[in-house]
Each structure stands twice: as structure tokens, then as C-alpha cells.
Design a protein around this nucleic acid. Sequence first.
DNA 1: GCCAACTATCTATGGGGATAGTGAGCTGAC
DNA 2: GTCAGCTCACTATCCCCATAGATAGTTGGC
Lengths: 201, 201
Amino acid sequence: MSLRHALLALLTVEPMTGYDLSKAFQASVSHVWHAPDSQIYPELRRMEADGLVVGTEVPWGPRGKKREYSVTAAGLDAFRAWMNEPLSYTRERDPAHLKAAYLEWAEPDAARAQLRAHIANFDQQRTEWLEKVREIDTGTSTMLEKRLAHAPASEHTSIRAYKRYTYEGLIARAEHEIEWAERGLDLIDDLLQADAAPPTA
Amino acid sequence: MSLRHALLALLTVEPMTGYDLSKAFQASVSHVWHAPDSQIYPELRRMEADGLVVGTEVPWGPRGKKREYSVTAAGLDAFRAWMNEPLSYTRERDPAHLKAAYLEWAEPDAARAQLRAHIANFDQQRTEWLEKVREIDTGTSTMLEKRLAHAPASEHTSIRAYKRYTYEGLIARAEHEIEWAERGLDLIDDLLQADAAPPTA
DNA sequence: GCCAACTATCTATGGGGATAGTGAGCTGAC
DNA sequence: GTCAGCTCACTATCCCCATAGATAGTTGGC
């Protein structure tokens, strides 16, 4: 139920079309939130029906048009309300750790491939987040700079700090996952070696 | 699509009823996988139709009966196949980090409550996983000991090692999340202090 | 002037999962 | 001997989301 809030979060920065939002999810904010356009467009309609956003037709080229959504006062209220209410932590599903717990069933090569894929996945995430932090620091994050432009100067430090804080946490998490998978690769080797040369004691 | 594999994983240890599986998800394996019984029973039926498991009626008390499912050879094949094929990493949704990125919208108290809830959540997980590791080490994990009883002695080291490895990773992750949230609490305080006493430079 | 690539929006279908309820039998404590 | 609490199984509904595909207009390069 919080695609809605993710959309509100992005729209607090500036009015956007469904397409813009879809791009934003695909690129910058992926791995924090993601949604296909087939989910975004209808949700925007619903949000408009609920008075959280208003859509206005904007000409696009000679004949084309697009629909740009901006947050209403009610939308801001809803977003603030969500921000002020605690999250409910639902039990998660974690296929990677599920598999790890039963790794003895996999061929050693498959087990290694699995862990390497884990590393590759989080290494890519890590790279993305590092780039985000760099953008925050150099002032080249378009979303952040737009957000700052609409906010009083007194809040700039906080806004910047929270963004950085978020991405730092994600980087640390990615690094932790990489480390864990690397220890797993070592473990596989150790177990195979122990197997090849059983204890002489 | 991998509730099915989670069920297979548990059933490789020993035959179980839907109720047993539901309990197993609620207790021990929650946070790695979780499913309500309303999902489990129909899935077991489907798995039986697909030949992955067979259910047998077992008497339970004078009049009652229960349906115990055990994995078939085809089920073992399917499980091994899944173990040997790489996971597809889908983009995840992370409400906690989404919120963190927009923390300036929350009241300071709400922000603190949010982070404290984050800490409480992962602290509880951490406690659970630590207990799991303790059970593994002391041989009091019923599931693990049953698994070992059915496995050749040569594999005992690996099985034990992979289980431990999994839980260690989860513990480290929980600790990382706690650390991150604690840094967040400090950050909130710092930003409020800076606000109260603006730079004199 | 045409084609490829991109922008923009929408619909359909199906699976997975959350939530909530029904109903039956069993067990043990009081 | 009965009531509370547990074991066991199943059903219904609704939402979220993934995937895929339809459609139409725009822009830029060759």
C-alpha cells in the first residue's frame, strides 16, 4: 500500500507525468522502490480521485499531450501523515538466505555461481549508491537540487543529510551482503578441501 | 513462485502436515520465509497434483485424521534443480529506506520513533537468530538434528556449516540495520542542535 | 522522407499474498 | 465433564504486483 507514498514522495519534489515517475523508479530510486508503468498510471488516477494529486493536460509537440500530476494540500497532508506514523514491519521473504540454508543440496559450482550472482547484484547496487552519494556531494543530483530549490534554506542541511544517510545505509548493506557471499565462497572451498583430505586425527 | 521451494526445503527434512509447515514458518523460519496456512494448504494440493509430494491420511486421535505430505523423487529433483539454478534478483521495495530519504518531512519525535521501531524489529530478529545459532551448536535444533539423521555422516559438517553460515549472515545484517538506525538517531539530534545554535562563523 | 528510438498512456491476465473467517477434532486442567 | 486452548484443514475476498501487449505521438539522424 505504499506505492502511493513513494509516488507522493517523488511528486513533492516537482510535478511529473506517469512516464517521468516510471523513469524515476527505473533509474534513480530502483532498489528502494520500483513499479512498472502499468501500476503507476492507474494508481495516479486513483490518487486523483482521492484528491491527493491533480493532473493537468500539458501539450507535447504539435498534436501530442501528456498529463502532469502535482500534489495537492491533501496529498501533502497524507504524505506527512504517513511519514509521522510508524512503519509496520512485515515478515520478509529472503530466497537468497533460504537457499543458503540448504546449500548442501546444490552442486558446488552452482553454489558458487549463486554466491557470485549475489555479489554481482549487490556490487552493482553499491556502485549505483556510491554514484548517488557523489551526486549529492557535488550538487549534481537533479532531484535533490530541485527539492532544495523549493525548501527554505534553513532546511537544506537536514534534507541533504537525510538523503546521504539513506544512501550510506544502503551502501553499507550492499557491502555486508558482498562480504557475506565472499565468506560463503571460502566456506565452500574449505568444505570441499576437508572432504578431499579427511581429518587424520 | 518459491513458496513451493520453501515448502520442499522443509519437507526434505521429514514428512509434515500443512499445520506443521505453517508452524514452522511462523516460528523458526519466519523472516526467511513466511506464509499463512491459507496459502500453504492449496499449494500442497497443487504440489501433489504436480507429483512433487504425496499426502497420506494419518489417524489423529480416535476420530480425527490429518494429511501428512512427504517429498517424492520428482519433488527432490525439482528442489535440487531449483538449488542449482541461479536466483533472479528482483528489485526490492524498502519502505524503511524510502522513509529515511524523506525524513525531513517527519516530526522529530516521529522520526525517532521510526528508527527506534527499526532497531526493535531487528533486535528481535537478532535475538531469534542468535538462539538459532546456539541451537545449532548445542545440537538442540530439532529440525537440524532430524536432517542430519537422514543424511550420510560425511555430509554432517557441511550441513551444519551452511545452516550456521546462513544465520550468521542474518545476524550481521540485523546488527548492521541496528547500527544504521542508531546513527540516524544521532543525526536527528545533531541536526536539531545545529538548528538551535546556528553556526557563528 | 523515412525509420529507429524514445515519450506517453492504457488494458488484460494471472499469481502471490494478506486478512479474515468457518468448522471440526483433540487434550489437559480445573 | 466441560471449557479453554490447541491442532488441523479449508474457503473467500481483495490488493499488489509482474508480465505482456496495444496504441499513438515525437524526435533526430541518415
